[in-house]
Write a protein that binds this DNA or RNA. Sequence first.
DNA 1: ACCAAAATCCCCCTCTAAGGGTGATGCAGC
DNA 2: GCTGCATCACCCTTAGAGGGGGATTTTGGT
Lengths: 210, 210
Amino acid sequence: MNTDETIRIVIIEDDEVIRNGYAFLIGKEPGLFVVNTYASFELAIKTVQADDPEVILLDIELPGINGIEALPKLKKILPSAYVLILTVYDSEKLIFDALANGASGYLTKNSSASKIVESIREVKEGGGPMSINIARMVVKSFLRNPDSPLSKRETQILELIGRGESRSQIAKELFIDLETVRSHIKNIYMKLDVNSRADALKTARLNKLI
Amino acid sequence: MNTDETIRIVIIEDDEVIRNGYAFLIGKEPGLFVVNTYASFELAIKTVQADDPEVILLDIELPGINGIEALPKLKKILPSAYVLILTVYDSEKLIFDALANGASGYLTKNSSASKIVESIREVKEGGGPMSINIARMVVKSFLRNPDSPLSKRETQILELIGRGESRSQIAKELFIDLETVRSHIKNIYMKLDVNSRADALKTARLNKLI
DNA sequence: ACCAAAATCCCCCTCTAAGGGTGATGCAGC
DNA sequence: GCTGCATCACCCTTAGAGGGGGATTTTGGT
């Protein structure tokens, strides 16, 4: 582990032009040092531990093992390294998969060099840097549909169904009769035009009702 | 709707000292205009529409109807207004509830005046409504336990259980036999030391296995 | 090349829980 | 005075969950 104040950086990116471009732009920044660059995860895995990076810039679209799969393996051999995802795509699933697998931040490739440099410093400070569009997407993913057809009680019960609870467990938890729970579930099914728990949850999550 | 470049602001906050303090600090900022202030949601709801604010600073700890419950009601009568949450607490649940109910940003009360002013301008630009510490919390909330005892397949099946799917639905979806699904579920139960879907989901979500 | 873990499939059993149908009642808001 | 909401009741059938006991093959790591 290095102890001075230089931030050691590794770049894993298959496109040579982009890779060298980033290495150059970051390398000339004071306090930032690009230790090494790799064109694939397979190449990186052999020696990246010796590079001892504090921040890894990781491309998602890699040949062979892709970035998402590479993420937990990288974190395993370098637990304290911060991984910043670089990608041209900004699909919701990709973002959440990356964050779930240990990414510390998420940058789209149209980010300016200064934004990337700023993010590297930020993540080192314990922050969670995200491009504006990513942050907006994450916030949006939390937002519930304010025009839900479901009542308060129905929403509450559907949430418990989402936790895998049975009718009787729900009844106990809400201090109401088993038959009342049944009634609510029937009404939920009617409103959502479904006839099973799985379909109700699918529809509800799709429409951000829960 | 006003068309000039002044940002119209409403403050809903029960503590008179804080309320007036914010109103004063924001009011003297060029381009920001505090149209009105209220001590409770009940007082605000009557006339806030006439105030036509673009940004609402909303306290969470309000007497009567609290901020979280007030949020969707505010958004209903003022759909285009940005709501910034003000609170002394920064619990994960509170933040996610606020975002789920339509908050655009989240500020703790120890934020400096300049930070608040900056946030108001930022949110008005439609951009980065998340402060660094909120982003960090969000990233953390997505992160899965890298030392999960569950195998890839088991995790996948537990996710489908989380969607409320039955054994046979899971079998069809994964192109495997119903009995194979059963085996996996048995192994999941053994590893997590549970004996029901609800308990498995509870344990898994608690330990960020799914 | 080997061992362990993972993934696949098979049959026994019980019985809870889910879902459809058709009601009723009291209460609140408009 | 209607409508939505929340509450509870009893009819019915069948699907599904969970416990127990196996087996085989494929895969990953050293």
